[in-house]
């Protein structure tokens, strides 16, 4: 741990970098993921086809390959040059995590019984009312636990950026461990702890939420 305390400012900067990538890409992925879910549920066939194709392709591609694509293929294919480092991490992770957000939301909406929407319509609620007063509040509780799991994976996935010239937590662990061979275990434990600070509250929330929902149903 000694090496970590000596380099606490480096560690702190790495922690904020990881957090910034996770939050920025997380918010963007949520927006894009909800849009994709809306496309997949829409009555308009081309939007459904587009969203289904996008989700299938991106979800089955490793995140490392998406980074590599952004780095080496995108400039030639789209003429798109993304600055290496944090911007590339945010863009790649947004595109990747959005597919999982989309799937979590979609399965949540599907879990609401058919009769619920039918009942809402038959008492004369409009489409927006049906969605916002009846379907979404019920979908919410089955969406939250899987969505939290998506975001736990998302936070950990920021580590892939370490392989693409981003000084985030895992890159710093690697650098410090190579520089301080006597303190390797302490460095990895410390950086692991830094990740747990972000992920443990989420996984505990998901678990308690799940048991609450289980009682409610």
């Amino acid at each position: 741990m000694g090496a970590l305390i000596e380099n606490s400012d480096l560690l702190w900067r790495a922690f904020t970098t990881t957090l910034w990538i996770a939050v920025a890409a997380g918010v963007l992925a949520f927006v894009w993921g909800v849009t994709l879910a809306a496309f997949r549920a829409s009555p308009v066939a081309p939007l459904r086809t587009f969203a289904t194709a996008y989700v299938t392709v991106v979800r089955n591609t490793p995140l490392t390959l998406i980074f590599l694509f952004m780095l080496n293929a995108a400039p030639q294919l789209f003429g798109l040059v993304v600055p290496l480092g944090v911007p590339m991490a945010i863009l790649s992770m947004t595109l990747y995590t959005a597919t999982f957000v989309c799937e979590a939301i979609r399965s949540g909406i599907n879990s609401v019984g058919v009769g619920q929407a039918e009942a809402a319509r038959s008492v004369g609620l409009t489409f927006v009312q049906t969605l916002s007063l009846v379907v979404l509040p019920q979908a919410f509780r089955s969406v939250i636990p899987p969505l939290i799991n998506v975001y736990i994976a998302h936070i950990k996935n920021t580590s892939v950026a370490a392989g693409f010239a981003t000084t985030e937590l895992v890159a710093v662990a690697n650098r410090l461990a190579n520089g301080n061979p006597g303190d390797v275990v302490g460095i990895f434990a410390g950086v692991g702890l830094a990740f747990l600070v972000m992920t443990l509250p989420l996984s505990i929330t998901a678990e308690s939420f799940e048991s609450k929902v289980a009682v409610a149903r």
Binding site: I152, V191, G192, S203, I204
Partner: peptide, 19 residues
């Protein structure tokens, strides 16, 4: 289960390589 679900796989891989 809780600790290792919350730590990046890459960190564990680096640990294997370096430590």
């Amino acid at each position: 289960t809780h600790v290792f679900r919350g730590i990046p796989v890459l960190l564990i891989i680096y640990f294997g390589v370096i430590a």
